[in-house]
Simulated scan of single mutants.
Amino acid sequence: MQFLNAAVCVLAAFSASFALPALAQETWPTKPLRLIIPFPAGGSSDQLGRLMAKELGQKLGQPVQVENTDSKGTKAAAGAAPDGYTLVLSGVGTNAISHALNPNLDYDSLKDFVHISQLSEGPNVLAVATASPLKSLQDLVETGKANPGKLTYAQVHASSGHLSMELLKQTVSTCVSGSTGTRNCTTLGLTGVPYTGAKPALEALADNKVSMLITNLDAVAPLVRSGKLRALAVTSLFRNPQLPDVPSISEAGYPGFKAVSWVGISAPKGTPPAVVARLEKEMENAFKATEARKQLEAQGLVVVVSRSVDYTDFIRKEIERWRRVVKVAGIQSPA
């Protein structure tokens, strides 16, 4: 009997040791969370992050406090305790393009994080001045190939728009193999003119100082609707409801072309699976057929709300793709 009682006690203690972590996960969260946004306050990425923080806070029953940082915030998130109380805004710049530009980046987006859900993606827009003789993407391609160096584009170094332009140049180039095995290539001979940001680049385009640019939809759409600029194409796979009369590059003759900005939510590697599953579920609850979803769609964004496994695979493919584009273009990391 004494042996039986002792065995029961051991079994009870053994079971309790596993029940406590499970119970902790069931009651998570018991305190406020923080969402690191590795961008200054006020920009489009910050606004998307704050919307996620607000919606998740309501669903979880605990506030999600926003912490704006510089680019070092992603590294800080990678080193944070994986207890479910630190989240980070992930996106095309910090988690894909940065890897393409800097092989010695001090964090690894595939090894240091668990990616929970992609919130949305938004296209860039290829635009020209209203007075431009270029009326279509085909006009641009034909003129660029026939007159190398004549056309210019506003280039914000290593931005999503810059890399979208490089992808376009690589996509429309045509090569023919000669009888001796040599390859003769006709490229889109555009000349980049550097600018420090989207605002001065758009001003230069409106003043006819450059022939074109590619930049974010939210920055271009009001200027297109007001008649100050003309949109030739969007870089998403399909047309965007904010500019319904503007074809996609894919539709305009280059099937499969896609170059979009995207954001989502991630956490440090080792965050408990039960926490990841709960966050994944609440992202879906917050942005499927809700007012928050309508708010994003009104800005021209495509709401994705993917599963963790899909978001992880998506980021892996984005890193590989932008590495290829950067290598071919010979783009160097900004100083």
Rank of each mutant, 00 (worst) to 15 (best):
Q2L: 15
A7K: 14
A13S: 11
Q25V: 09
E26M: 11
P29C: 02
T30A: 11
T30C: 10
K31L: 07
K31D: 06
P32T: 04
L35N: 01
I37G: 03
A41V: 12
G42P: 01
G49C: 12
K59W: 06
N68V: 08
N68P: 09
S71V: 14
A78P: 00
A78M: 05
G79F: 07
A81T: 15
Y85S: 08
S90E: 15
G91V: 00
T94W: 01
T94D: 07
N95S: 05
N95T: 01
S98G: 08
S98D: 10
A100M: 01
N104M: 14
L105D: 03
Q118D: 04
N124M: 13
N124R: 12
T130W: 11
L134F: 03
L134S: 02
L134D: 07
L137G: 13
L140G: 03
V141S: 09
G144H: 02
A146L: 09
G149K: 10
L151Q: 07
A154D: 00
A154M: 04
H157E: 14
A158P: 00
S164C: 10
S164Q: 08
M165R: 04
E166V: 04
E166S: 03
Q170W: 04
V176M: 13
S177N: 14
T180M: 11
R183W: 12
C185R: 02
G189M: 01
G197C: 01
G197K: 04
A198C: 07
E203I: 14
V210S: 05
M212V: 03
M212R: 10
I214Y: 08
L217G: 13
V220F: 11
V220I: 11
P222N: 07
L223T: 05
V224R: 10
K228H: 12
L232D: 09
A233H: 08
L237E: 08
L237R: 13
F238Y: 13
F238K: 15
N240K: 03
N240R: 03
P241G: 05
L243S: 05
V246K: 04
V246A: 05
P247N: 04
I249Y: 07
S250V: 02
P255S: 09
F257D: 08
F257H: 06
S261L: 12
V263S: 12
I265A: 00
K269F: 12
V275Q: 08
V275C: 07
E280P: 01
T290D: 01
T290N: 02
K294P: 08
K294D: 10
A298I: 09
G300H: 03
V304I: 13
I315N: 00
K317A: 08
K327N: 14
V328I: 14
V328M: 13
A329Y: 02
P334R: 06
